[in-house]
């Protein structure tokens, strides 16, 4: 996909996404994540997600929107099984397939899964280590000790995350000494250093100022050439700016899922229209 958006255009909030992104894509991308009729519960009693069916395609950005508590973050965390950390939580129905494999199958190693499905959290949380070690962390835990490989991975990841120019002279400084936006980009660099197939982003910009947000959004549109991205956001402008597809959730159900332009300009469900026009949420 040929994306020509630039940072300056991000600040113009009224501008609709450009024609190239708004047109339905000619090529149907390969499906990477299939969410097939999934129910999810935190306590094995009440389902917080119901009958979710959704496909995420390669090299696309899919935005999850909806009011707080609608289950969009929960769904995101299902995709790399982060919910495993919560006792008693789990799918009660359906399955999630990534690259054709059911991720809850008994032979699946959750650690291997997470290496392929990276995640960026709402609150940026660099490890209390140097910038270099933060980015190299994922490789180090895989047992890579070769300095040359690590150096290269750190550099390319930081370049991809658009942070290289700002930190290349102080790679040994603490990751906690960076500004908020830089720390979030450091976390993105850390995630992409292990070369995942998919990156899950859980409200990556909600704790950032508008300028940093613009930088991150710019980064997301660049990253989708190499990765499949799912992003949870409360900011509907952000969804229109960065995503190709948008899914609207309400009370644990998937209300509408379609191309971003279509969903925002011509929603087919009333609830979606009410939500995007700010009547609730």
């Amino acid at each position: 996909m040929n994306d020509t958006m630039s940072a300056t255009e991000h600040q113009d909030y009224s501008t609709a996404p450009q024609a190239t992104t708004s047109n339905p894509p000619e090529i149907e991308h390969e499906v990477v994540i299939e969410i097939d009729d999934v129910n999810f519960s935190y306590d094995k009693k009440k389902d917080v997600l119901q009958d979710i069916t959704l496909d995420l395609r390669k090299n696309e950005v899919t935005a999850f929107i909806g009011p707080s508590g609608c289950g969009k973050s929960t769904l995101l965390r299902c995709m790399n099984r982060m919910n495993d950390l919560i006792p008693n939580a789990g799918l009660t129905k359906g399955e999630i397939r990534i690259l054709g494999t059911d991720i809850h199958a008994p032979e699946v190693d959750v650690i291997e899964l997470r290496k392929h499905v990276g995640m960026v959290f709402q609150k940026y949380n660099p490890f209390p280590k140097s910038i270099y070690e933060n980015v190299a962390y994922g490789l180090r835990i895989q047992g890579i000790k070769n300095k040359a490989i690590l150096d290269e991975a750190v550099e390319t990841s930081l370049i991809s995350a658009g942070l290289w120019e700002e930190v290349k002279d102080r790679l040994d400084a603490s990751g906690l000494g960076l500004s908020g936006g830089q720390q979030q980009r450091l976390c993105i660099a850390r995630t992409i250093a292990v070369q995942p197939k998919i990156i899950l982003m859980d409200e990556p910009c909600s704790a950032l100022d508008p300028l940093s947000t613009a930088t991150i959004e710019d980064l997301i549109t660049k990253l989708k050439h190499d990765f499949t991205i799912a992003i949870v956001t409360h900011n509907m402008q952000q969804a229109t700016r960065v995503s190709d597809k948008t899914a609207f959730f309400y009370l644990g159900e998937l209300i509408e899922f379609s191309d971003t332009t279509k969903l925002f300009t011509n929603p087919s469900v009333k609830a979606t229209e009410d939500y995007i026009s700010g009547r609730f949420g």
Binding site: L85, I111, K115, G138
Partner: peptide
């Protein structure tokens, strides 16, 4: 959150 981040990296 720190350990959660680490788990998400496949640790």
């Amino acid at each position: 959150a720190l350990s959660e981040n680490s788990f998400a990296m496949g640790a």
